[in-house]
Amino acid sequence: MGTEAMLGLTGKDFVILAADGQAAYSIIRLKNDADKIWKVGKMLFACSGPPADAGNFMEFIEKNVILNELRTGIPMSTKAAASFTRNELAHALRKGPFQTDLLVAGVDNDGPSLYFMDYLASSEKVNKAAHGYGAMFTLGLMDRYWKPNMEEAEAIDIIKKCIKELETRFIVELPNFKCKIVNKDGVKEVKL
């Protein structure tokens, strides 16, 4: 568990992800404007961990999801992409593990879906999720305010409450957050 904070919520017809912009090595902050949310096809992957592991693993996943679509002519569903990603984490765990935690988000014909994955290759479909030490401060807020069929404005408000809680209680300063929403029309970035 790192000092990062990644948050995710499902809504009526969308999924929202937010991640801090900190890239760190040990106790050294390397940068404050890292984008930890990757657009892969029509999905979003939030990935945290050591910057090299996160970058290399996400490039590998992105290229393979695109390759699969080129081979089959069919875009991967969010469930299939999450299963593929979990399987790759499980294989890597036995060879040279990636220290990456992920949130996989997408909207398919059966609605929005959010998958919680950790570096030990566990995976679960959830309605709300958080990774890193930030999860200790934000999951309670998500439990309290999340509801089925939320509108985008409500979800953005919950994300803002979570970030405010991190600013108030967390000893590590996480100055910048990126926030992105995926829906049936694609991906958009939200200014917080």
Rank of each mutant, 00 (worst) to 15 (best):
G73S: 14
L70E: 13
A90D: 06
D118N: 14
H131T: 15
L44K: 02
N183V: 06
I171E: 12
K180W: 05
K191I: 10
K191V: 12
A92L: 10
R86T: 11
I37N: 05
V190N: 02
N87F: 13
W146P: 01
N56Q: 09
K160C: 11
K178L: 05
K42H: 13
R144N: 12
V107E: 03
K180L: 07
L9R: 11
L192Y: 13
N183C: 07
L114Y: 08
G2V: 03
T10H: 10
Y145S: 11
I66Q: 04
L103C: 01
I74L: 15
K184S: 09
D108I: 08
R144I: 04
S113C: 10
D35L: 09
I163P: 00
A92R: 14
V187P: 03
I16R: 00
C179I: 08
L141Y: 14
N149C: 11
D110N: 14
M142P: 02
F14R: 04
G11R: 03
I163D: 00
D110E: 10
F45R: 02
K12D: 15
P175T: 09
I37W: 01
I181S: 09
N64E: 10
L139M: 15
F60V: 08
D13C: 05
K191A: 11
L17D: 04
L9P: 04
K191Y: 11
M136G: 05
E173C: 06
T138K: 15
S113L: 03
K42M: 14
V15W: 01
M76Q: 14
D35M: 09
G2D: 04
A54F: 12
F84A: 01
A18Q: 02
E4I: 08
G111W: 04
I156N: 00
N32I: 00
V190P: 00
H131A: 09
A92N: 11
D110G: 01
L9K: 07
A24W: 01
I181Q: 01
A18L: 04
P112R: 03
T72A: 15
A153I: 06
P75C: 09
L30S: 13
V15H: 01
E124P: 00
K79I: 15
I66F: 01
G140Q: 15
D53P: 14
A23H: 03
N183Y: 02
A135V: 07
M117A: 06
A80M: 11
R71N: 10
F57D: 02
I27A: 12
K39L: 06
F170A: 10
R86Y: 05
M43I: 05
K180D: 01
F98A: 10
D53K: 06
V187F: 04
K12W: 01
R169I: 01
S26W: 03
L139C: 08
F57E: 09
F177Q: 10
M76D: 02
T85N: 12
P51V: 14
A90L: 11
S122G: 12
S83C: 04
L9T: 02
N149K: 12
A46H: 07
L192P: 07
A18F: 04
L93P: 00
N127F: 15
M1K: 14
E165G: 07
D110L: 07
N149W: 08
G55Q: 13
I66A: 05
L7I: 13
E69H: 13
G96S: 10
N149I: 04
L9F: 01
G8I: 06
K161N: 12
N87E: 12
P112D: 06
I28T: 12
